[in-house]
Design a protein around this nucleic acid. Structure first.
Length: 239
DNA sequence: TCATTAAATTGTT
DNA sequence: AACAATTTAATGA
């Protein structure tokens, strides 16, 4: 529930500026207003950041932690759209159209989440070329990612599904704080991919055997992103 | 700093 | 889903 995030929210700290990719693209007066309007809150694991149907009040970003964006199908099944890693921002489509959220966002682990009020968002759209540029790049990047997801979803091969999720999370254009080291547990990855933890564990070791990733405690190291990308996006490709 | 303990995560059935 | 093994984090001397 957004109000829970509300209750604990506080202004942005200066040390957090660097975690927000679009701030550096703003001119001084734009920067000043954005920083003073930005709010930061702690979301506990399992906590909802936004819910389907609620009017869009914030454009959200992850400072650290991990979120899952999902919808509830008519059949009552949960379908995960994507994970949001540190440095990632989401909800711009909804905020631009001034609509209600069309998805749920939930913290998979304890996460620091920033929110920019819709009013400020629109002000930046109206005044800042740098901001517009960021939004355009982000929308463009997301389109590409969803096309890849469509291809990846046609397969039921866990190894490919897992590979695709990893490639998506390692995308520096969407999650610029994420390097070759993904801080994600196998359980969290399982929630994102929609597979059991056991199956994810098995798939990860298959990927590790191919030297595409290294499995570590509480995190994964990506060893061969190009090969992982081929595997995740193109069903027949074996590298 | 080190040893002990609890908690989290992984590996396996 | 359950359980054992392993790794990390927390605690206190």
């Amino acid at each position: 529930m957004t109000s829970r995030l509300h209750a604990r929210q506080r202004p942005l700290r200066e040390s957090e500026f660097a975690q927000i990719p679009w701030l550096s693209r703003l001119l001084p007066n734009e920067h000043e207003r954005a920083v003073s309007d930005l709010r930061v809150g702690m979301a506990q694991a399992g906590e909802m950041i936004c819910r389907t149907g609620r009017p869009a009040t914030y454009w959200f970003g992850v400072i650290d932690g991990l979120l899952k964006v999902s919808i509830l199908t008519l059949q009552g099944r949960t379908t995960t759209y994507t994970g949001i890693a540190p440095g990632g921002w989401f909800g711009e489509g909804t905020v631009i159209k001034r609509e209600a959220y069309r998805y749920d966002a939930q913290a998979l682990r304890r996460s620091r989440v920033a929110g920019l009020p819709t009013g400020t968002f629109h002000w930046l759209l109206d005044h800042s070329i740098g901001f517009n540029r960021f939004i355009m790049d982000q929308l463009n990047e997301r389109v590409g990612q969803f096309i890849g997801t469509l291809a990846a979803e046609r397969t039921s091969d866990p190894e490919q599904r897992v590979a695709h999720s990893l490639v998506a999370l390692a995308n520096p254009r969407l999650f610029y704080n994420v390097g070759r080291e993904l801080h994600i547990t196998q359980q969290e990855l399982a929630y994102l991919v929609g597979l059991s933890r056991q199956r994810v564990n098995q798939a990860l070791h298959e990927l590790a055997a191919r030297k595409l990733v290294r499995v570590e405690y509480g995190r994964l190291r990506i060893l061969d992103l190009p090969a992982l990308r081929r595997l995740g996006l193109e069903p027949e490709s074996t590298g």
